[in-house]
Simulated assay, not measured.
Amino acid sequence: MHGASAGFSPALSLSLSRSRGWALLAAGALTPAATVGIDLEHSSRVGFPGFDDVALTPAERQLLAVLPPNQADPWRTAVWARKEALLKARGTGLRLDPCSVEAFGEPTDGAVLVELDTAALGLPAGFAAALAVVGPA
């Protein structure tokens, strides 16, 4: 059987994200305990008043405070994409308070979290995307 060894049959994990008419799909043949999460965000969704209070940890708000104003919304967009990808891969989604998830911290559950190059994916400016894999791969 292709892709299987010693009685192990990989499970297919899927994750989909859409934003402003664009979509990303992540798929992986992983161990049954592993899952993927992907998120695609546009900067127009993060610049509203109060976003920082509902989405960022205190440490992330400190990092944001030192950024030049023109980098704030792209950074917020990347943070939100990372958090959503991780929460999707963990299977909790937004049932878990995003303020409790560090977008740049070292995950304690063995998760792998990477930002995707949206220009290389052919997406227009203003997008951020992230991919997370949680569990044994």
Rank of each mutant, 00 (worst) to 15 (best):
G7F: 10
F8W: 11
F8R: 15
S9H: 14
A11M: 14
A11R: 15
L14K: 07
S15Q: 06
S17Q: 02
S17K: 04
S19W: 00
R20K: 14
G21C: 05
W22S: 01
A23Y: 10
L24W: 12
L25M: 14
A26V: 08
G28R: 13
A29L: 15
A29R: 15
A29N: 10
L30R: 10
P32T: 11
A33S: 15
A33G: 14
A34V: 10
T35Q: 15
V36W: 06
G37V: 14
D39H: 06
R45T: 11
R45S: 12
R45K: 09
V46L: 03
G47N: 03
G47V: 01
F48A: 12
P49E: 08
G50L: 07
G50N: 08
G50S: 05
L56F: 13
T57Y: 03
P58C: 09
A59D: 13
E60L: 09
R61D: 01
R61W: 00
R61A: 06
R61E: 05
R61L: 01
Q62F: 00
L63V: 01
L63P: 00
L63R: 14
L64M: 13
A65R: 09
A65S: 15
L67C: 05
P68A: 15
P69N: 01
D73P: 01
D73W: 03
D73S: 07
W75S: 12
W75V: 09
W75L: 10
W75N: 12
R76L: 12
R76G: 04
A78D: 13
W80F: 14
W80P: 02
E84A: 11
A85Y: 02
A85C: 05
A85E: 02
L86A: 09
L87H: 11
L87N: 08
L87P: 04
K88T: 02
A89D: 10
R90M: 12
T92I: 08
T92L: 09
G93Q: 05
L94H: 06
L94V: 03
R95M: 09
L96S: 12
L96Y: 04
D97P: 00
C99D: 02
V101G: 01
E102H: 12
E102C: 10
E102L: 12
F104G: 09
F104I: 02
F104V: 05
P107M: 11
P107H: 12
T108N: 03
D109K: 12
D109P: 06
G110K: 08
A111T: 06
V112P: 00
V112R: 15
L113N: 06
V114W: 06
E115I: 00
L116K: 10
L116Q: 09
D117P: 10
D117T: 06
A119T: 14
A119I: 08
A120K: 04
L121C: 05
L121H: 03
G122K: 08
G122I: 14
L123R: 05
L123C: 02
P124E: 05
A125M: 04
G126H: 11
F127L: 00
F127N: 01
